[in-house]
């Protein structure tokens, strides 16, 4: 398992702030600039969302952005162009978060190859479980890509062990039962879940890190999560900042959130 965690493309930094933005929102060029602005302001890992017609894990902020991207003409092939442009300018692990059907329709092997060629680090896949992902597990091994499966507070111990065993790069711990979107409090369930993931084998960089996402929107919440987890994932708060205040406003929000990673 240690080989997995330290796989070249899939290595994530210690105390990582992981920032999510959808590709193609508000347009392809701006989304590339926005991702670079995140990195320049302290985001250590990029999670680029692939806009999809039926984003069942996402709350309104991300739904609106990804729908706008689709209406503006987003195509799946834009992902590779965006990753390549971003990786040409900044040196951070860049993962793509995608629902599974677009990958299947593009071709799992072809998607993995094109992502790897573009300099991408791997995929975060919210709507497949490891037991249904044999082809992706094989392909990501071949292509040396990270594969991040999700663990939820309701997951059984057996499911958590399977998720830890099958993930590569990190495990995505869903902080609370719910969809993406800012919350006043990040649920205590997140701490419990990370504890259970530790028991299931995700003990940190030496094995595989456990990162917490959903509901995190303030520097204080980032700091709190990094008190027990290996990384904090922020999405809706960044998307909202970009939607309301453009790239410069996004940069300010990212810099504030990054203060939460200070020891």
């Amino acid at each position: 398992m240690s080989a997995d965690a330290t796989a070249g493309a899939a290595t994530i930094p210690d105390r990582a702030l992981i920032g999510y933005l959808p590709i193609g929102f508000p347009d392809l060029e701006t989304s590339i600039d926005a991702a670079i602005a995140l990195v320049e302001n302290g985001v250590g890992v990029l999670e680029l969302g692939l806009p999809y017609s039926d984003p069942v894990m996402d709350g309104l902020a991300i739904q609106k952005a990804t729908q706008a991207a689709l209406q503006a003409g987003f195509r799946v092939r834009d992902v590779f162009a965006a990753v390549e442009a971003i990786r040409g300018r900044v040196e951070v692990p860049t993962l793509v978060m995608t629902y599974w059907n677009p990958v299947v329709q593009y071709g799992v092997d072809r998607f993995a190859r094109d992502l790897r060629d573009a300099g991408g680090a791997g995929l975060i896949t919210p709507d497949i479980t490891p037991d249904a992902a044999a082809d992706w597990i094989a392909t990501s091994e071949q292509q040396d890509l990270a594969r991040v499966f999700l663990a939820a507070p309701t997951s059984s111990d057996e499911r958590l062990r399977e998720t830890v065993r099958s993930s590569r790069g990190f495990v995505y711990a869903v902080s609370t039962m719910g969809i993406t979107g800012a919350r006043q409090d990040v649920d205590a369930a997140a701490r419990t879940l990370v504890g259970r993931l530790r028991t299931a084998g995700a003990t940190g960089p030496d094995t595989i890190p456990a990162c917490v996402g959903i509901g995190i929107s303030t520097p204080g919440q980032v700091a709190e999560v990094l008190g027990y987890a290996d990384g904090a994932i922020v999405g809706s708060a960044l998307v909202t900042a970009l939607a309301e205040h453009g790239v410069s406003g996004l940069a300010r929000t990212a810099a504030e959130l990054a203060q939460g990673t200070d020891r």
Partner: peptide
Amino acid sequence: PGILHGARSYLLQDEDGQT
């Protein structure tokens, strides 16, 4: 064939797999 709502079945979708 495509995946929607947690099942693989026949699906009306575009080239990119958007429903």
